[in-house]
Design a protein around this nucleic acid. Structure first.
Lengths: 235, 235
DNA sequence: CCCCATGCTACTGTATACAGTATGCAGAGA
DNA sequence: TCTCTGCATACTGTATACAGTAGCATGGGG
């Protein structure tokens, strides 16, 4: 999250464990609501508890986990509240970042269009999400405010879990590429405000399908992963 | 940052050490650029290295520290770049949060005015900054998007160091209370958009004095500690 | 006199051992 | 049969010990 240098030398077990856990959380190998047993998990990962705990602490401060003092760490459950809050944030951040980034050069525009074409034909959920994120990060690549970009990346991490869960069940509600085309069209005619507006709409629309899916899910299985109750009852 | 429960039971040494370090960083007892010696610091705090390291990891992911893999943790140096980036973010976040929060009730408005009066007469830098933060957080108290509020609190933590450093040297450039009055006036006539606009201006103006102070400082003594960290990371 | 190599020192990263606490179960009493 | 109490167990939180590495100083060679 912080340093370019460290990312180039992922020497630490701590760091690589954190990255691994992040993957396990977003792809569901560590299900939402699950209580984490440090001994078992450290055995499974082949490391000791010390670096594992450092990783867990970091993930907790990133919001991926919840820590209950003498009880342990939990994978944060997927809740409608958090979803709506997270999805309300990117329409705020992304357009501002684009405004600061300014119009992309011809080469970048070309790469964006290429990405969008690949996105249109992508089928695998992980691919779709990965390409979409790549598109948006490239769009904001020139933004000089790296702190802002870090925040956006952080939000992306937090949304990925929801998006993956959605796309696993319903097969790929894809309207994003159309939004992207509108953004690109605005950029091509060098109309930054229009591009920002289109981007904002794009970010706002991403919410709807996930909200409705999660609502249905909540109705079906009441309170997905109410952490405490489940864990205490021994699951 | 995440859990209400943990905040009520700050049982962990880890947590309290993190809080302590945060204070030491913002008030300068751990100066910007300083390399942290884990053994000495753990002795000084009267704890072992394990919880200290957990705290350090968390602070690194919050952006207060930088971690260089086999070299250690550093207090992030104060740089003009980071300052400008951080200060560009709150004018984006705060007005949106206020928009979501809506108009405050009469009681809250009263408390806001009281806070602002106390702010006018405050002299001690820590007090001034504390009251200003309290004002802004109360203003956004009704905002239902807690993730957004968390982000703002995080930004506040990151700015505090700069503000304190400024106010220690120049005695309290105070124009904020006037901005606050404009915000309150707009709220009193129940004009939310005007309040948001005033809030935005308030957030934008805070930058200027710090930027000019830091620029002068950079000219004088080029960034204590920055040299070493930079050289090492090969930037 | 300067440069390079080698050994020393100190610090980080990781593992492990220990202590304290919460939970679940079993047994006894009502 | 139900409840309460005490014990055993398992897991977290913390300390400590160990290993590996980077930096530094000192000494020898050019």
């Amino acid at each position: 999250m912080q340093r370019a240098a460290a990312l180039l030398l992922p020497d630490n077990i701590s760091d690589s464990v954190a990255a691994d856990l992040r993957r396990r959380i977003v792809d569901g190998r560590l299900p939402a609501g699950e209580r984490i047993n440090e001994v078992h998990l450290s055995r499974e990962l082949g490391v000791s508890r010390t670096p594992l705990r450092e990783a867990l602490s970091r993930l907790a401060s990133e919001g991926a986990l919840t820590s209950l003092p003498r009880f342990g760490f939990f994978v944060r459950p997927l809740t409608l509240d958090e979803l709506e809050q997270i999805y309300d944030i990117r329409p705020i951040l992304d357009p501002e970042a684009l405004r600061l980034a300014g119009l992309p050069d011809a080469k970048t525009l070309e790469r964006l269009e290429k990405l969008n074409r690949r996105l249109e034909s992508a089928r695998d959920p992980e691919n779709v999400i990965g390409l979409d994120d790549e598109f948006h990060l490239l769009l904001l690549d020139r933004c000089p405010n790296r702190v802002l970009i870090e925040m956006i990346q952080n939000i992306i991490l937090r949304t990925r879990r929801y998006e993956l869960a959605l796309m696993r069940e319903t097969s790929g509600v894809r309207r994003a590429t159309e939004d992207h085309r509108r953004i690109l069209a605005a950029l091509r005619r060098r109309d930054l405000p229009a591009a920002c507006a289109a981007l904002k709409r794009n970010m706002q629309w991403g919410r709807a399908p996930i909200v409705s899916w999660l609502k249905a899910r909540v109705r079906r299985a009441h309170l997905p992963g109410e952490a405490k109750a489940r864990a205490r009852s021994g699951r």
